[in-house]
C-alpha cells in the first residue's frame, strides 16, 4: 500500500521540480528579451492618476512605471488586465502589461477607487 504511494509521490515531486526548473529557464530567456519593452509613466497624485488615459500599441509588451507621489499607499488594480499591485507612498514601481488586443482596459486604485481611475487604450 505504502510503496506504490511513495513512488507516485516521488514521481510527482519530480514533475513539480521539472516544472520549476522549466519556469526558471524560461524566465532567463524572458530577461534577455526585456530590452525591447516599451516603457510609459503613470503618476499618482492626490489619489488621481496622471495621465488617466494611457494609449499603447496593440501586441506590444509595455512596462508601466508608476510613481506614487502621495504619502498614502495605493493599489493599482485592473480586472481587465488581471493586474494587482500595491505601491507604497512616495515610491515607484513597475508593472508589465500586454501584449494586448485592441480595446479599453480600465484600471483603478483599490484604496481610493472613487477618485483614482484610469483607462489603458490599446490601438
Amino acid at each position: 500500500m505504502s510503496e506504490p504511494a511513495a513512488t507516485t509521490k516521488l514521481r510527482n515531486t519530480g514533475i513539480i521540480l521539472s516544472v520549476i526548473i522549466l519556469l526558471v529557464a524560461v524566465s532567463f530567456i524572458a530577461q534577455l528579451a526585456r530590452a525591447e519593452t516599451l516603457e510609459i509613466e503613470l503618476r499618482i497624485r492626490d489619489h488621481l492618476f496622471f495621465p488617466d488615459t494611457l494609449v499603447i500599441p496593440a501586441n506590444q509588451k509595455v512596462r508601466i512605471r508608476i510613481f506614487n507621489e502621495d504619502p498614502t499607499p495605493e493599489e493599482f488594480e485592473s480586472f481587465e488586465l488581471n493586474r494587482e499591485k500595491i505601491i507604497a507612498g512616495n515610491s515607484q514601481t513597475v508593472i508589465f502589461i500586454g501584449p494586448l488586443k485592441e480595446g479599453e482596459y480600465f484600471f483603478f486604485g483599490e484604496f481610493f477607487p472613487k477618485t483614482a481611475q484610469g483607462v489603458v487604450i490599446v490601438e
Binding site: L23, S27, A30, R34, K61, I95, F96, G98, P99
Partner: peptide, 18 residues
C-alpha cells in the same frame, strides 16, 4: 505574478468569461 513581473513569457488569454 511571474507574468506581471515579466519573469515568464506572455501566453495568450485562454478564454473570456467576463
Amino acid at each position: 505574478l511571474l507574468n506581471q513581473a515579466d519573469w515568464l513569457p506572455f501566453t495568450p488569454t485562454a478564454w473570456d468569461t467576463g
